[in-house]
């Protein structure tokens, strides 16, 4: 993906097809349970997120890698110890 202009807003990743909630504070627990949960044998939730890649800032989208094997690795945080 193309290099994107960088602002000071707190950017984040987003799951494809889910619109950001208008009232984030008042979410009911039932609604939370409806969010997609990854399971083996099921489609991986598609996402797009801002990323650091080879010296630049580019967003990355999972579905752009359809046709390839993908390893997605979550980890607790940068500058942690393991």
């Amino acid at each position: 993906m193309a290099e994107q202009p960088q602002g000071c807003a707190r950017t984040t990743g987003a799951v494809m097809g889910e619109k950001p909630s208008a009232q984030p504070a008042a979410e009911s627990p039932e609604k939370k349970e409806m969010t997609m949960t990854a399971r083996v044998g099921q489609k991986a939730p598609d996402f797009e997120a801002p990323a650091y890649y080879k010296g630049g800032f580019k967003s990355v989208k999972l579905s752009e890698y359809l046709g390839k094997w993908v390893l997605v690795c979550f980890y607790p945080g940068d500058f942690t110890f393991v």
């Binding site: 987003a14 799951v15 969010t35 996402f47 997120a49 990323a51 650091y52 990355v60």
Partner: peptide, 14 residues
């Protein structure tokens, strides 16, 4: 790519 998910949206989905 080192992706950023500051709001935890991807983390919740996974």
């Amino acid at each position: 790519h080192m992706a950023s998910d500051q709001a935890g949206n991807l983390g919740r989905a996974y």
